[in-house]
């Protein structure tokens, strides 16, 4: 009976397992294998390179720039979009009139594909006729070359990402807020706790599981989402907005060095796994699961 159950369980798992193996684990392993070779030149078969691809990565200034950019990009977008998401969730969760419309408004950026968002923001950022510069000019300030100035380009990308992501994270916070027990808040009110005290001692700790979930997703997205680069900057100017995944794409499909791209991919993968593990370990300890 037990053995039959086991077999049954494995059979039920088989379809998912096959798909997961075929499209995730096996490609990961071939990527690893692929990263150990030099690219094929002409008719010669590709030569075994050992760790040569990884060594050259250490000397690759563009790689390090993309790495730095990506770190700053994550640091700049993740906390801000999460804080905004929480603030918006608290706001649309309160008893205000027209909150359904407000929720929809906040959620709209999430429904748009990244490419469409980038096109909209391209209009905002355009130097001469762009919305932002028109606003700046109207109050007597000189416009900024948002996407062309290396000092501003990455910041411009961050702004757009925050705008797009916070509405998405708001939904998770909103769902979590609505599942909290109302009586707890009544009890806190009877105990004369101020709104700030209630937020700090009750709401925030009870939202920690959601915060962890959102944090992991936000960090992953900061490394995974590069669609907007194709529209806005293509990694420029002078690699000021080059991000890791975009650099991988460039290596594979612009420079046709798929072996180096494979090595980069593996590094990115390991980086993401490390980040996720660290976040879980750090935050898990402070989380109270009901």
């Amino acid at each position: 009976m037990n053995r039959f159950n086991q077999l049954y369980a494995w059979l039920m798992l088989l379809p998912a397992l096959v798909l997961l193996l075929a499209f995730t684990h096996i490609p990961a392993l071939t990527t690893l294998w692929h990263s150990l070779f030099f690219p094929a030149r002409g008719r010669n078969p590709s030569e075994f390179a050992g760790l040569e691809n990884y060594r050259s990565m250490l000397d690759d200034a563009v790689f390090w720039q993309a790495f730095h950019n990506n770190l700053w990009y994550a640091i700049g977008t993740v906390p801000t979009s999460m804080a905004l998401a929480l603030a918006m969730a608290l706001w649309v969760n309160s008893k205000i009139s027209g909150r359904a419309a407000l929720r929809l408004a906040y959620f709209t950026p999430t429904m748009l594909p990244m490419i469409a968002v980038a096109n909209i923001w391209l209009f905002f950022y355009t130097p001469e006729i762009g919305l932002f510069n028109k606003i700046l000019n109207s109050v007597g300030l000189t416009g900024i070359n948002w996407l062309g100035d290396p000092n501003w380009a990455l910041i411009s990308l961050m702004l757009m990402t925050i705008w797009k992501e916070s509405g998405f994270f708001m939904i998770f916070y909103l769902a979590a807020l609505q599942s909290l027990n109302k009586d707890i808040y009544a009890a806190a009110a009877v105990e004369n706790a101020s709104p700030l005290y209630v937020f700090r001692r009750i709401t925030l700790p009870l939202l920690m599981p959601t915060t962890l979930f959102v944090l992991v997703n936000a960090v992953l997205n900061a490394f995974k989402l590069v669609d907007h680069l194709f529209i806005l900057t293509k990694g420029g100017p002078n690699n000021a907005t080059n991000l890791l995944l975009y650099y991988i794409y460039e290596n594979a499909f612009s420079f046709f060095d798929s072996n180096y791209a494979a090595a980069l991919t593996l590094v990115l993968l390991i980086l993401l796994i490390l980040l996720a593990v660290v976040q879980f370990l750090l935050v898990e300890r402070r989380i109270h699961y009901r």
Binding site: D183, I184, A186, A187, A188, V190, E191, A193, R201, L206
Partner: peptide
């Protein structure tokens, strides 16, 4: 005034001691 709720309305993430003195701390 003080109130006891049907659902107890205890703070699930706080220890029993913290739950009991919650109001005193807030005050």
């Amino acid at each position: 005034l003080a109130m006891v709720f049907q659902s107890y309305a205890l703070f699930p993430h706080l220890s029993i001691a913290e739950n009991i003195v919650f109001g005193l701390k807030a005050r």
